[in-house]
Design a protein around this nucleic acid. Structure first.
Lengths: 207, 207
DNA sequence: GTTATATTTAATAGCTCTATTAATTGGCTA
DNA sequence: TAGCCAATTAATAGAGCTATTAAATATAAC
């Protein structure tokens, strides 16, 4: 049905699998369906990746790593004010999710249901760069000392940002269904909420 | 293994099914396992509920309805200030999720993957009580007019509250895994975030 | 105590899924 | 062209799942 050409079949399988896992989760996606959509025999999926678990973990690890490393990477900016850094972090995180709207739900689902996977992932991730965390913490402390922020913990800012942004994308299909939004209005809603989420965080920090 | 007595077997099956569906989702839960945990023959599950879909929908509809009706019900308070009403709504929503921590993820997962279910649910729900929405909107307008709130839409307050609270519970297992929290520290985190989420919303509204 | 009714079980048909194995095809090289 | 290796397929074992059917057991009614 969905045969792709001019890509190696191994790559095609990976891409099809990623799409299907994101749409339907691990359990509801079968190697049989992956093969059907990729346009190859089902045994080929196992030839390249041996097990369904292997295939899934290959994809999942890459995506999970991306989410995390993005959080660090989005903070490599020098000479702007703290609140501009916060704005940039929120927007950058939001944009990442806009490009990967189904990822938060997949991550939440698969890690809730198989917490032991989280242990493996945790070991494979580079540790949270304490240097970065410390630096941001110092900047925040300075903001507080100079009266530009209320007394607040950095971790709470991060948790608020992540739950707010990821929560929106995880609940978006429901909001769409209830509010009966078409694609155009969904885009508008997202553009609007991007600004609102920035506002929520900035007001949260404001003294 | 988990045989329960002194309840009708039909009720036991319902309770076991609810627990398993919440833990593992629809697809990963089998009627075979439900029967095993309930301590009865697998055919009995189908005797009472005919299909797995039926059983799931019975449970899911009840839970979904609860989530919605709670949102309305938590707003039947007369003589307190608007910001106290907001605080109460956020805390009450948070507490509901504390008692049903796995529900948001189940709802998000199953409705994302089967959007047609959402249509059925939508019809079965009582329509959003416009009277309530209008009344709150009027109160908010008055707050804005009198300078106690900045110019803001009611729907944005609601979206912020729901994504913030539900997002936290959906991501909690991940936070637990990453931060290595035991049960005690998880409780502390939740108690803390309950206050923070109130603060986030109140600051979001503040002029 | 017998009969009707509700509850529960055993057995099984019919699927679909994962994973493996052996055979087939196709391209490249010597 | 023969031979090697990678890519691909056909076939299938073995398992689990849903749903149904018929039989067995318990419960209540008369």
């Amino acid at each position: 049905m969905d045969i792709k050409n001019d890509l190696s079949m191994e790559q095609t399988i990976l891409e099809v699998a990623e799409k299907l896992f994101l749409e339907k989760g691990f359990t509801s996606t079968s190697t049989t369906e992956i093969a059907r959509v990729a346009g190859c025999n089902q045994a080929l999926v196992h030839y390249y990746f041996r097990t369904k678990d292997n295939l899934f973990n290959t994809i999942f690890e890459k995506k999970f790593r991306m989410l995390f490393e993005h959080l660090y990477a989005s903070q490599n900016f020098g000479n702007i004010s703290f609140s501009e850094k916060v704005r940039h972090a929120v927007e950058s995180h939001f944009d990442l999710l806009t490009n990967n709207p189904k990822l938060p739900l997949l991550v939440a689902t698969e890690l809730s249901r198989l917490p032991e996977n989280l242990k493996n992932l945790r070991n494979k991730l580079q540790a949270v760069p304490f240097e970065l965390f410390t630096r941001l913490n110092n900047e925040l402390q300075q903001e507080i000392d100079e009266g530009r922020a209320r007394k607040i913990e950095l971790i709470d800012i991060i948790i608020t940002m992540v739950t707010l942004n990821a929560g929106l994308f995880m609940l978006l299909p429901i909001a769409n269904g209830i509010l009966q939004l078409d694609e155009e209005h969904t885009k508008e809603l997202l553009a609007h909420r991007r600004n609102e989420n920035v506002q929520v965080i900035l007001n949260y920090i404001k003294p």
